[in-house]
Structure formats: C-alpha cells, structure tokens
Simulated assay, not measured.
Amino acid sequence: MYCLETVIAGDEVLRRLAGDVVDARIVALHGSLSLLPMTDEYFDAVAVRGSPISQALRALGVRRGSHLDEFDAAGLGRHRRTEDWLVTPNE
C-alpha cells in the first residue's frame, strides 16, 4: 500500500498555496480539481504558516492552544490519516 499526503482543490487555490515553493508540483485531476503533493519541502514551507486546513480553521476562530495544530484542536486529529478510516472485515 502507498499513502500519498496531498491537498486537493481547484488549480488557482493550489497555485496560491504553493506560493514560492520552487519544487511544488500541481497535478491536474478530473474536472476542475488538481492535487498538490505534500513533499518534504512543501510541508516544511507550510508548517511555518500552518496547513491550508489549519489556516481555514484559524480564520473560523479555532485556536491551537497546546494541541499539535488547529486541526487537532478542533477534534479532527483522529481523522488525520485516511488509512485509519478503513475498517477491515475482521474488525
């Protein structure tokens, strides 16, 4: 199994998120969506200002406090890894 961490949104949104990260790669998907892989370089760049989701949650009034980030502070941390969403038949 391969897990890919990415941001999926419209191309214009991803170009703004990529900002000045030289190696950021935006990949077109079906329809009007594209994806931006969370490479180490891109992750390091956004870690300073927070992930796009954390930035949105901050704009909605969520405060990080002692949590890892705003995503965790909002109680969403348990959904951080998509492989944890799957339930195998033996569970």
Rank of each mutant, 00 (worst) to 15 (best):
Y2V: 05
V21Q: 10
M1E: 05
V7S: 08
I26W: 12
V22S: 15
L33T: 04
S51Q: 00
I53V: 14
V48P: 03
F43S: 02
A28V: 07
A18S: 08
R58T: 07
R81S: 15
M1Y: 12
A73C: 13
E5S: 09
G75N: 12
R58F: 01
H67N: 07
V13E: 07
D72R: 02
R49F: 05
A59Y: 00
E91I: 11
R49S: 06
T6G: 07
L86A: 14
S51F: 00
E70P: 12
M38T: 01
S51L: 00
P89M: 11
L4N: 05
A18H: 06
E83A: 14
G65V: 11
M38Q: 06
A47F: 01
H79E: 11
G65W: 08
I26C: 07
L76D: 08
R63G: 06
N90D: 13
G65F: 10
A24S: 03
V13D: 13
G75Q: 08
L17G: 02
R49T: 11
L17Q: 10
L86C: 12
R81P: 15
D23A: 09
H30P: 13
S51H: 01
D20E: 15
D84K: 13
T88M: 13
L29I: 06
L60N: 09
A56M: 02
P52W: 00
Y42I: 02
E83S: 13
G31R: 02
L76M: 14
E83G: 15
V62I: 14
D84N: 14
P52C: 03
A9K: 02
L60W: 10
A56V: 08
R78E: 11
R58V: 03
R78D: 12
A59F: 02
A59R: 11
E70I: 07
L33G: 09
I8E: 12
G61Y: 05
R63C: 08
G61A: 08
R15N: 05
A74C: 11
R64G: 04
R15A: 07
A59N: 07
R49Y: 01
V22M: 12
E5M: 06
D44V: 05
E91C: 12
V27N: 11
G75Y: 11
R49H: 03
H30I: 02
V62Y: 01
V22Y: 08
P89Y: 12
R25Q: 15
L57Y: 00
G65A: 06
R15C: 05
D23G: 09
G19F: 13
A9S: 14
R63F: 09
G77L: 04
V48C: 05
T39A: 03
S32P: 10
R64N: 04
R63N: 08
L4C: 06
D20T: 13
H67L: 01
V46D: 00
A45M: 05
R25C: 11
H30S: 14
D23T: 09
D84V: 11
G19Y: 13
R64Y: 00
L29E: 12
D23Y: 02
E91L: 15
E41T: 07
A56Y: 04
D69E: 06
V21I: 07
V27D: 10
C3F: 14
L86Y: 14
H67R: 06
D23K: 05
A45K: 00
D69G: 08
A24H: 05
L35V: 04
V46N: 01
V22T: 13
E91P: 03
A73W: 10
R49Q: 04
Y42G: 03
A74P: 14
P52Y: 01
L4F: 06
R80H: 13
P52F: 00
I26Y: 12
T39P: 02
